[in-house]
Design a protein around this nucleic acid. Structure first.
Lengths: 204, 204
DNA sequence: TTTCAAAGTTAGCGTCCCTTACATATGTTA
DNA sequence: TAACATATGTAAGGGACGCTAACTTTGAAA
């Protein structure tokens, strides 16, 4: 379409930091145009290299996207830990905080979020991403167990955690697909998280 | 890749029913390869026509996919009505039934389901699909209101309905992305729907 | 200084979406 | 029945993309 936003000029034949710059360009483009409209060619234009250059650093287009997804998943993980840190261990606030981080990430970086959780065609093939995802989910399960008075995760904790995950996962996708604004007042999102957290975590 | 499954032979120059057959081919391929790996060319191979033929019947690739999504949404709607029909009006069973239909559709036709709710890039442009989606959601809202003792949908009903939608929406995507088998026993899915339905619909 | 591997480039193949120009069947109307 | 407008097909090709092969440049090690 239009010319890319930035063309990095370079004085020498070698780029110096092409791999990192391609990942950054990929992330930007994924956010700007969406994961399914990302093209390697455009990333090359942004980075100012030929269309063959990326294949010295990545196996294929998919590997470029997976790097971005992987990076997103790690940042997501860190954000979760940072968010719950202020609250007392075992409090419902920590659960709510996890949900807040989930939906906030989705709304702030919908492109990367889709990449992380969305089209799973190629996720199965990316073991690192699955592993990182498991680690993230382990945080949720542990916090659920703690909130229910245990430091080890039991079957009931697993079930509650999965309820919560399903909810915030669906909420996040509805939000970035514009259904939040159509069917629910976004200003009340925090309240919704709190109420669902309470309903799911409550005994009986 | 490999040669298409079926090539429809025809004796006359004209096809007779190309539009319908292209939609059917599109649905099949969307299920087989996933929405993002669908190509118009392959649909043409399946239908046994030239690659230019579809453009006499559809504006572009997207319109072909939208037809499939639209058809899916209508079937989804019918299934919902059929599922709740046996249960008494106002019962929680009707709510549970709606959730069961939602997740069942996702697991039975993940490709079409993704098309209906997934990549929303082009959904905004498809007014029919949005309208049909609103109708479907209206069913949910009405059943929630009835379950809470009213024939008209109030703010609290809207909120409960949105909680339920978020949950089954997320649950469905987790399921078709293989997370269900990893993190939750699929055999207990019905039980999960029942418990969440109860927790969300309960007073206080 | 020579050699070599890493990291660029150019050129090109195959696929895809879509358009344009042309060909053929069908139904209506004189 | 003949002529024509319309609907529906084909053939050919432009432009974008993913990726590969073969060549070139470069910095660093031997």
């Amino acid at each position: 379409m239009e010319s890319p936003t930035t063309i990095k000029k370079r004085d020498s034949y070698h780029h110096g930091d092409l791999r990192a710059q391609l990942i950054e360009a990929t992330r930007r483009l994924v956010e700007e145009k969406g994961p399914d409209h990302f093209s390697v060619s455009e990333a090359c234009r942004v980075a100012g290299v030929s269309t063959a250059a990326p294949y010295k650093h990545f196996k294929d287009k998919n590997e470029m996207l997976q790097e971005v997804a992987m990076d997103g998943m790690q940042r997501h993980h860190q954000e979760m830990l940072a968010e719950i840190e202020p609250y007392p261990v075992g409090s419902l606030d920590r659960i709510i905080g996890l949900g807040r981080v989930y939906t906030r990430f989705a709304q702030r970086e919908p492109g990367v979020f889709r990449l992380m959780f969305g089209l799973s065609d190629d996720h199965d093939e990316c073991e690192r991403l699955v592993t990182q995802g498991n680690e993230v989910y382990s945080v949720v399960k542990l916090e659920v167990a703690r909130c229910r008075g245990s430091e080890t995760v039991g079957p009931e904790d697993e079930k509650r955690a999965f309820m919560l995950w399903s909810f915030v996962h669906g909420l996040s996708f509805l939000a970035i697909d514009g259904k939040l604004n159509d069917f629910f007042d976004p200003a009340q999102l925090e309240g919704l998280l709190i109420e669902v957290g309470a309903r799911v975590m409550r005994d009986s």
